[in-house]
Design a protein around this nucleic acid. Structure first.
Length: 886
RNA sequence: GGGCGUUUAGCUCAGCUGGGAGAGCGCUACCCUUACAAGGUAGAUGUCGGGGGUUCGAACCCCUCAACGCCCACCA
């Protein structure tokens, strides 16, 4: 009984169906497999700020392919999903939304009210993200779904905070931080982006107390002079050396400040004379520390000038800069203004200019942790793929700066530090304490700040598996899945995230969090540009799934994922792979009507005929190469191996070669061929399943035995030496070459595809002669050949004919009608000259004593074989040219 | 300024420890051949960025120049 199948595969109908079947059948749950080993990948939790983009789709594709591969290999696999609260990013988008909808900002609400709004946002967008991941086919165990603000991650955050606090590795300090005036929070230096900005160099004249001399100071920020507490010169600078120790008078505010000597000052830059603003410049802050200078904060938290700014109070820095410069000009203190391009820090999230500002913040001393994180990678406890990314990792960790972990936000893990309002005692606690540990006062309050998002993300490999809650750790099988097998992510967060996880895992577990790190490429548009909202060149995974199907989309992403650092994704390419998916569908349509007459297994390998040995041998090679490629994260190689096997071997040749057998009445041969077709196709589905899970599962349902499980639970094909038939592969390649040559000859004289031709083959290889004679029917099928004659080169060649010559066989197509002799001759001469050029390379090598002396034997052997073959071909060409011309 | 990377067919990219230049898409010609026109058959296209060196032999190793990209640092 055969069912009419449509000629195109419809992804829409099948995808939802299978995802549901897998999920409800608990196929995503970890189960002990035949290897008795565990394999775990944790999804880098997407931010709940919005929808998934193409980069996330690549994340899921690479991870899920690996998980499915390992699951089929018999590992106990866990693919663990999650979501990240993404403190700053999420709070900003909600603030923006509230402003647009209600024209209110967050301070118009209580903290509790506002956080409630963010939770509502999280519910909505978090769920969209999960739906998208499911649409991508992610085989996650959703019972493990964790959000960074869930109770256990919160417990983890508190635990490590309190530990580090008690070890004095977390400390509070007045420090100059990157202040984001729009967020009104400190941000970490990693969240600051430097952009070149067109500004000015203002040269100012400073009076020196008790002297008629003046100093010329160059600055890009005259408005900060209200915070100046020194003027610095290089101690080696002959121009200013004598002034060190004297007092300079700052214009406008007339503050008297010391002139100091400091190495930091560059003799070449500006005027060689630097105004020192320890409260609003990172270098100046360091200078200030060295010289114990007072610090003056001239800014409010919104970035406007405070009382120190005198008449400029309340203005933004930008505005004040103009006004101050104008005033200085009027007072003839401004000597000159030079235009100057210089980098200025901008908030990665908010986009506004970051102001260096002094404030009290929490820091982690990462000196020791980062050293351990370096050692672990040096010792290969964690391996990077591709290895070059180690450099990026090292460069960050070898010169670590203390990590500012406090943020003046409302959305996040609140810092577990408490203050007593009565006795001033400060302590850290994992519990929500209600009284002072020291004086028992009930008047206490918790630090209002929250922790940097990466502080909780850094604990992700542990907290998602239940740490530090013992009961949860047992339930989630911490011991089995930690350390994770591989972390897959983009290079942009090696610093932010990978390094932090390494540090925190070594700190809390005394071992690395994952054995491998695979760094995948950044997805860009087809022109190589970053995908961004402003360019409107983003690729929405949902659109691609809708248009081409998930399998095609996954295959495109996987085929672009190797050791490269960018993938320029062109939707047309996805279309190309959609066609490939459809090809598989149609291969099934071809074998489907015959399935009943064969079995799914090969009963006796020895009974296989030549073409059957060839295809199983090719299959074997493909399995080997796919296994190897997956193990080292070469998805691109895995894809091209399976693509060319399915397309170029199975469909183009094996199916074509099977048609005549399927049409014969030879039931035994037919049954065997059907079995091989089925056997190989089943393996193809298994090979492809990790990359294209949906269509393969759909077709498997039609091919499987009734007692067999779903494809997702089948074994992954492996290399097996019993299936290797090298001789058949060699012979088949020659056959393909001859067929192609016949087709080429036909096309060269415009013989209609339907018309039959006679062909005569000449070769001195007796095995080939026998082989060609046995395959007469296939010449008929594949090249419309009638009257195939095969003989050795002693025989006379046909008179009127067109011909091609390979290294092993001369191919003649005798023609009845008129042949353009000159055209044939010129074609042969062209071929001859090309072959001679080729030959000379080998001849030169053989005549080169040094080559024969130095090259390895296998290379010499190859050259000898090629030389002989090509010499043979040249002889054939020459002889036949003589015949043609006579 | 420091570091990393890229440069191979019209486009997007592979090319492993050096040993006869590849794939997909696109393009051209001819075909609606009973799995597939989302298809078939055949075909064209490359000073492997430039220059130098090492080697019997270089797309690959070394030096150098050029163009482009990314990361880090830096508000005088």
């Amino acid at each position: 009984m055969t069912i009419e199948l449509p000629t195109t595969y419809s992804s829409k109908d099948t995808e939802k169906k299978w995802y549901k079947t897998w999920e409800s059948g608990n196929y995503f749950k970890p189960k002990k497999g035949k290897t008795n080993k565990a394999y775990c990948i944790i999804v880098p939790p997407p931010n709940v700020t919005g929808k998934l983009h193409a980069g996330h789709a690549l994340d899921i594709t690479t991870q899920d392919s690996l998980i499915r591969f390992k699951r089929m290999k018999g590992y106990e696999t866990l693919f663990l999903p999650g979501l990240d609260h993404a403190g700053i990013a999420t709070q900003s988008v909600v603030e923006k939304m509230v402003w647009e909808e209600e024209k209110k900002n967050r301070r118009d609400f209580s903290r509790e009210e506002f956080v409630k709004k963010i939770w509502a946002w999280k519910e909505q967008y978090g769920n969209t993200i999960l739906d998208q991941q499911k649409a991508m086919g992610a085989s996650c165990d959703w019972d493990y779904l964790t959000f960074t603000l869930d109770p256990i991650p919160n417990q983890a955050v508190k635990k490590i905070f309190v530990d580090l606090y008690n070890q004095k590795l977390i400390y509070q300090s007045d420090y100059i931080v990157h202040w984001d005036p729009s967020l009104q929070s400190a941000v970490s230096e990693a969240e600051v982006e430097h952009k070149d900005v067109q500004g000015n160099f203002f040269h100012l004249k400073y009076q020196i107390k008790g002297s008629t001399e003046t100093l010329e100071v160059a600055t890009t920020r005259p408005e900060t002079l209200f915070g100046d507490t020194a003027v610095a010169v290089n101690p080696e600078d002959e121009r200013y050396k004598h002034l060190i120790g004297k007092i300079a008078i700052i214009p406008l505010c007339n503050r008297e400040v010391p002139i100091i000597g400091d190495e930091h000052v560059d003799l070449e830059k500006g005027t060689g004379c630097l105004k020192v603003t320890p409260g609003h410049d990172f270098n100046d802050f360091e200078i200030g520390k060295r010289h114990k200078l007072p610090i003056i904060n001239i800014l409010n938290i919104d970035g406007t000038l405070n009382d120190h700014g005198m008449e400029f109070k309340g203005m933004s820095c930008k505005e004040a800069r103009k006004k101050v410069a104008k005033k200085l000009e009027e007072l003839e203190i401004l000597i000159e203004t030079k235009s100057h391009t210089h980098p200025v820090g901008h908030g990665e999230r908010s986009g506004v200019v970051i102001e260096p500002m002094i404030s009290k913040q929490w820091f982690v001393n990462v000196k020791e942790m980062s050293a351990r994180a370096v050692t672990a990678v040096e010792k290969n406890e964690t391996r990077f793929f591709p290895k070059e990314w180690e450099n990026t990792y090292f460069s960050w960790l070898r010169d670590p700066k203390d990590w500012c972990i406090s943020r003046q936000l409302w959305w996040g893990h609140q810092i577990p530090v408490f203050y007593c309002d009565d006795c001033g005692h400060q302590w850290a606690s994992e519990q929500t304490d209600s009284e002072c540990k020291k004086c028992k006062s009930k008047k206490i309050h918790q630090d209002p700040d929250v922790l940097d998002t990466w502080f909780s993300s850094g604990l992700w490999p542990m907290s998602t598996l239940g740490w530090p809650n013992e009961k949860a750790m047992n339930e989630k099988k911490f011991e089995t899945f930690f350390p994770n097998s591989v972390l897959i992510t983009g290079f942009d967060i090696i610093f932010f995230w990978v390094a932090r996880m390494m540090m925190m895992s070594l700190q809390t577990q005394n071992q690395v969090p994952f054995k491998d790190v695979y760094i995948h490429a950044i997805v860009r548009d087809k022109l190589g540009r970053k995908m961004s909202k402003s360019l409107g060149n983003g690729i929405d995974p949902f659109d691609m799934i809708e248009q081409y199907g998930t399998d095609a989309f996954r295959f495109s992403l996987a085929s672009g994922a190797g050791y490269n650092r960018t993938i320029n994704l062109d939707p047309e390419r996805i279309g190309g792979y959609r066609n490939f998916i459809n090809k598989i569908w149609n291969a099934y349509r071809f074998i489907q009507p015959h399935l009943a007459s064969g079995s799914a297994h090969i009963a006796d390998l020895h009974k296989l005929d030549h073409h059957e040995r060839w295809i199983v041998s090719e299959l074997n090679t493909t399995s080997k190469s796919m296994n190897e490629s997956f193990e080292i994260y070469r998805y691109d190689d895995a894809c091209s191996a399976v693509y060319s096997f399915v397309y170029d071997k199975y469909c183009s040749w094996f199916i074509e070669l099977s048609k005549n057998i399927l049409n014969t009445e030879n039931h035994e041969a037919k049954a065997q061929r059907v079995s091989v077709l089925k056997f190989v196709f089943r393996k193809i589905l298994a090979l492809l399943h990790p990359i294209t899970p949906f269509i393969t599962e759909e077709l498997w349902a039609n091919l499987k035995e009734t007692n067999e499980d779903l494809l997702i639970a089948q074994d992954y094909p492996e290399y097996d030496s019993a299936f290797e038939f090298q001789d058949d592969q060699d012979q088949m390649n020659k056959f393909i070459e001859v067929i192609t040559n016949i087709r080429n000859l036909r096309a060269s004289v415009n013989i209609k595809p339907k018309d039959e031709v006679s062909v005569e083959l000449f070769t001195d290889n007796q095995d080939l002669i026998n082989y060609f004679r046995k395959n007469i029917i296939n010449f008929q099928e594949l090249a419309r050949v009638k009257d195939l004659k095969v003989g050795n080169k002693e025989l006379n060649r046909p008179n009127k004919s067109i011909m091609n010559i390979t290294t092993h066989t001369e191919i003649f197509v005798p023609l009845e009608g008129v042949i353009d002799l000159n055209e044939q001759i010129s074609r042969l001469e062209k071929e001859l000259s090309k072959t001679v050029t080729d030959y000379k390379k080998y001849e030169a090598k053989i005549n080169n004593e040094n080559f024969m002396k130095n090259a390895p034997e296998n290379v010499r052997e190859e050259v000898r074989v090629n030389e002989a073959e090509i010499r043979e071909k040249i002889n054939s060409l020459k002889e036949n040219l003589i015949q043609f011309k006579s």
